[in-house]
Amino acid sequence: MGVNIQVEHVNAWYGTTHTLKDVSLKIPANKATALIGPSGCGKSTFVRCLNRMHETTPGARVEGTIQMGDVDIYKAASPVEIRRRVGMVFQRPNPFPTMSIYDNVASGLRLNGFRKRSVLDEVVERSLKQAALWNEVKDDLRKKSGSSLSGGQQQRLCIARALAVDPEVLLMDEPASALDPVSTSKIEDLIFDLKRDYTIVIVTHNMQQAARVAEQTGFFLSGVMVEFDATEKIFTNPSDKRTEDYITGRFG
């Protein structure tokens, strides 16, 4: 099941660059939340703060509180624990090239020391089915490497890999921007199915995509969250002039 995420006064820096300025919002459980905005506006930095990936960059720093369910992720848990609860899918598909399809999906459990074969088999099948990839790869799970798949399949493999560790939240940082339209629509269908079980946060440059998959949308500009509201409201009747300019294509 997904969890609510409560973000309060979050600031983030890369070295001396202040990339995220006093962001506060509530991300509801079992819904998809889209983050839009021009390149470099801080939306990727924001999702990277949600699974404490931001701090792996040398010189990066975060302030403020993020409450996930009843856990303060920066005070009450280690980054490793948080990342097990928060799955992440990146812009470019990044399957482990030295591992087979099976090993890719099982990697999250296996590399955390979990080795029971029958359970792994079950998890791999379940995750690949959830990611709508099972039928395409079930015959060469161990024969083919993850990187031998097509781009769209690789991305669904990465989603399966993230789901296999049974997270509560799924972060997707422009998951379809490197894919063709057919693969993109598959990923979007998938997001629809996945929100039943997870809290989904999706960063996207594609405003139609945000409108299609997300219940709420946040608009970022220069590190500030300008507006956060129901998706329909953002796209039909935004309260802020800057949001309106952006979605009507007047800048950005």
Binding site: M53, R83, R84, G87, N112
Partner: peptide
């Protein structure tokens, strides 16, 4: 991207180095 893929799965850094980066 490969390191982040592993870290993002909640795999500790030492394990990421041994099983992903070094491999």
């Amino acid at each position: 991207a490969l390191r982040e893929a592993a870290l993002g799965l909640g795999i500790p850094q030492w394990r990421t180095i041994v099983s992903v980066s070094l491999r």
